[in-house]
Design a protein around this nucleic acid. Structure first.
Lengths: 227, 227
DNA sequence: CGATCGGTAATTGTGTACGATCGCAAACGA
DNA sequence: TCGTTTGCGATCGTACACAATTACCGATCG
């Protein structure tokens, strides 16, 4: 693996895991020292992270970790609903029987973890969910669309949605996963797109209206990077 | 201006103007020599262009200019229709009176150039059209959405659509521009989105079915970079 | 007391050398 | 004749040194 890739992964992980908080200044020289490499790979990594929107770089002032407002979140979820529903629509007329079978298997396993009392269980469900959505995107067979979706899905708070779901939310999500499979199976793009749009907008509602008063820490439990 | 930015612009221009054809291998050392700079800024430029999809880089084999298939074009226009209609929808509830007035002015000027017999006239219309769409995107007030649209609009064949329009196409396009203004003025997001979707898909049809048998050279007339 | 104008230090931007890796072709053996 | 291997050349990946630019802070003046 290239040193630049390693630096990219390391810095990205630090941001997504919350060990560097938004607003923090990232200085090339410091990063190079910490990651045991030179500034050149660090620069490449920072530029990539900037392109993904995780960093904002100002000349001679270093790169700062982006901050996310509520408005940003809304915007991101709206974007995601548009893109993912388009992916689902395309997938409906392209998906294979094998992929459909795998989607069913994923749903089964998620239902098995259903109670989701432990944090580990939630992590597991989150991973399965990511896999599920990855399969749908892949079935859409549009690299460009896929890239765009990734860039909005990988953002810190987005991949942690499941940690804010309560039982009814989980149930609805599971139902939508099943319904989407039906829509895909019969090749109904309109239906598939609509289900996916609802699915994403439901997630948006859960995140944007933080009326869950239990733990209330939005600390990002880091999911397996789905890149 | 940073040397890296200059290199980026120069290379991008070469690709978009067609002076380097798809498939060409771009070698960092050569580019550095040609552009009177060192490899470091070149590297940064190439990475940015790669992120935009204009290049495909393989380690130790150099960067190659991406090739576009018909399927790519379809995909790009579908993406664009989804994104631009979303932008129009957002713009409908955010656009200002001033911006609306400018849109009207742009339409008036485009109608003035309507016959569009000369190539210069078409270039002029193309520039006005770009400005029009830029205003709508800006009114959507979503940097992320805007960035995504730019990345699909800046592709070579996309910004040259007007050079393939015949009189009826131009007329329809003009009508849609006017209709969109109406939708925006009354703040009807659904309407605005639908008009924009139709507008983009009409452009897609013109490009993807190349049944125009006049000049038939798809040589890309380079529009002003709208970045 | 506030604003403006320096100077200094920190940080990024660029050039270049060197090492690593890979593709390609020629030579060798079966 | 064909497959394999080996060596060379080309190209990228990384490191580091230096230049340029800018931010920050303190001092001075109104």
């Amino acid at each position: 693996m290239k040193s630049a890739d390693a630096a990219y992964d390391a810095i990205r992980l630090q941001i997504l895991s919350g060990s560097v908080t938004p607003g923090t200044r990232l200085i090339e020289a410091d990063l190079a020292r910490d990651l045991q490499t030179s500034r050149t790979p660090i620069r490449e990594a920072l530029r990539r992270l900037e392109a993904e929107g995780l960093l904002e770089v100002s000349p001679h002032r270093g790169a700062r970790v982006s901050e996310w407002t509520l408005e940003d979140l809304r915007e991101i979820y709206d974007l995601r609903s548009a893109l993912e529903s388009m992916a689902a629509e395309r997938a409906a007329i392209r998906i294979s029987e094998e992929t459909l079978a795998e989607l069913v298997a994923l749903c089964d396993e998620m239902d098995g973890q259903a109670p989701a009392r432990t944090s580990a269980s939630r992590d597991r469900i989150s991973a399965l969910n990511n896999r599920y959505h990855d399969l749908v995107r892949e079935a859409a067979a549009s690299p460009r669309l896929n890239t765009m979706i990734q860039s909005v899905v990988q953002l810190p708070l987005v991949s942690a949605t499941f940690h804010r779901y309560r039982a009814p939310d989980m149930q609805r999500s599971a139902n939508q996963h099943r319904e989407l499979i039906e829509a895909l199976r019969v090749g109904d793009g309109q239906w598939a797109g609509a289900v996916m749009r609802a699915h994403v907008l439901a997630a948006k509602a859960t995140l944007v209206k933080p009326d869950i008063a239990d733990g209330s820490d939005i600390a990002v439990g880091l999911d397996a990077p789905n890149s």
